[in-house]
Nucleic acid binder design. Structure first.
Lengths: 214, 214
DNA sequence: ACCTGAACACCGTTCAAGT
DNA sequence: ACCTGAACACCGTTCAAGT
C-alpha cells in the first residue's frame, strides 16, 4: 500500500534482476528467492514492492514493453507502423526467454497503452475509420507478437530434432503432403524476410482499406 | 524405457485427468501430485509413463491437437483451410486454459504433424510452389494460434478493468490517439467476425499467389 | 517505510525397495 | 511391468516482529 512513497529505484533494480535471471536461466528460474538473492534482499522484502509474484511478472512485461521505442512522429504512417513492428520484434530478440510472457499475460499496463497509442495514431492517419482502428490494431499486434514469440521460442521446430527423422517415423501414408514436399521442408528459413513479407502484406491491406474509406 | 509395453489406456487416463485439472483449476494447478490423486496413483508412479513433467505437458499438447479434426479430403482447398483454422479455434474455446501451451512449447509431436499435413496439402492444391508452402503454413498457423490464444487468455483486455478507467489514468497528453478515439474503443467486439475476416484475407492472399504461380 | 526469520503448505525429482 | 514411501532441495505466501 501507500504506493506513492515506495523506492522506485529499488523496484527497477529488482525488475532488472528478474529480467537478467529469466534470460540467463529461463523463466522457470525466476523465483522470489532467486531475485532476492541477486539484489541482496530476503524474498519477503519483495512484497513491499509487489503484491505477489503475479504482479511482479506484470511489471516485468511492462519493463520489456518500455524498451519498444515510440516511432518518429514526423514519419509517414506507413513508416511508423513498420517501426513499431520491428521494435517489438527486436525486443523479442533481446529478451527471447521473457518475451513469451507478453502473449500469455493479459496486458492491462500503462506501458502497453503507450506502445499501442502510436499504432492507433498511424492507423487513423492511414484513413482507417474510428470504429475499425481497434480491430486492425489487434490483427497487427497478433501478427507481430505471434510471429516473434513463435520465432524466439522455437515453436517452428528448427533444431529440436531433425525434421527429417521425425517425418520418417510416420510413413507417407500418414503424412502424404510432408513426403510429397520432401526436401522443400528442410530449406533454411530467412526469418527477417518472412517477417517483412507478412508485415508488408498487412500494411498493404491497411492502405487499401484506408484509401477506400477515406 | 521399453516404451512399447506401457499401458496406453492408463496413459490416456492420466492425460485426461491433467486436462480436466488444467481447465477446472488452471495450468498452475497441474502438478504431478494433483494428477496422481485424480487417477489414484502416487506422483512417482507417473514417471513410468512420462520422463518428467515437461514431457507430460508435451503429451498434453498432443492430446489437445488430436481434437482438431482433419478436414474432409473431398472439399476444396479453400474449404479445407477454413476447416482447419476453425477446428483449431474451436479447440481453444474447448480448452481455454490449456491451449496457450501450444504457442509456448515447441511442437515436435506426431500429432502436430498430423494437423499440419492437411494444411500443406491444401496449400499445394491452391497452387503454392513447394518451396513456399512451409512459409505460408507458418503464417497461417501463427495467425490462427495467435488469435485464438489472445482471445481465450484475455490478452485483449476485455473485463480485467474497464478500458475507460485505465485510459483516464494517463492523460490525453500521454495517450492522444486513445482519447481521440474515445468511445470507439469501447465498442463490443465480435470475435467470430474478426477471426473470419482475418481468415478470409489470408485465404485470398493464398489464392492470389497460387493463381500467379500456377 | 522497509526489512527479517520462522513457519506452512506446497512443488519436481531421486533413490531404494517392493510385487 | 508397475507401483510405493521416504527424503532432498526447492517453491509462494502469511505472520509476528524489528528499525
Amino acid at each position: 500500500m501507500s504506493v506513492g512513497k515506495i523506492n522506485q529505484e529499488r523496484r527497477e533494480e529488482i525488475l532488472s534482476a528478474a529480467l537478467d535471471l529469466a534470460e540467463s536461466d529461463g523463466l522457470a528460474a525466476v523465483s522470489l528467492r532467486a531475485i532476492g538473492a541477486r539484489v541482496g534482499l530476503t524474498p519477503m522484502a519483495l512484497y513491499g514492492y509487489f503484491a505477489n509474484k503475479d504482479e511482479l511478472l506484470d511489471w516485468l512485461v511492462g519493463r520489456v514493453l518500455r524498451e519498444v521505442p515510440p516511432p518518429d512522429p514526423e514519419a509517414s504512417w506507413r513508416e511508423r507502423l513498420l517501426a513499431c513492428a520491428r521494435g517489438a520484434r527486436a525486443a523479442a530478440h533481446r529478451y527471447p526467454r521473457t518475451f513469451p510472457l507478453l502473449l500469455t499475460r493479459p496486458v492491462v499496463l500503462p506501458e502497453a497503452m503507450r506502445v499501442v497509442d502510436p499504432l492507433y495514431e498511424a492507423l487513423l492517419d492511414a484513413g482507417i475509420p474510428d470504429e475499425r482502428v481497434a480491430g486492425w490494431e489487434r490483427m497487427f499486434s497478433t501478427f507481430v507478437l505471434g510471429f516473434a514469440v513463435s520465432e524466439v521460442s522455437g515453436r517452428f521446430g528448427e533444431g529440436n530434432l531433425g525434421t527429417k527423422e521425425r517425418r520418417d517415423r510416420l510413413g507417407p501414408g500418414e503424412l502424404p503432403a510432408h513426403h510429397r514436399l520432401g526436401e522443400a521442408l528442410d530449406l533454411p528459413v530467412d526469418w527477417d524476410a518472412e517477417f517483412e513479407e507478412g508485415l508488408a502484406r498487412l500494411v498493404a491491406m491497411v492502405e487499401e482499406e484506408g484509401a477506400r474509406a477515406g
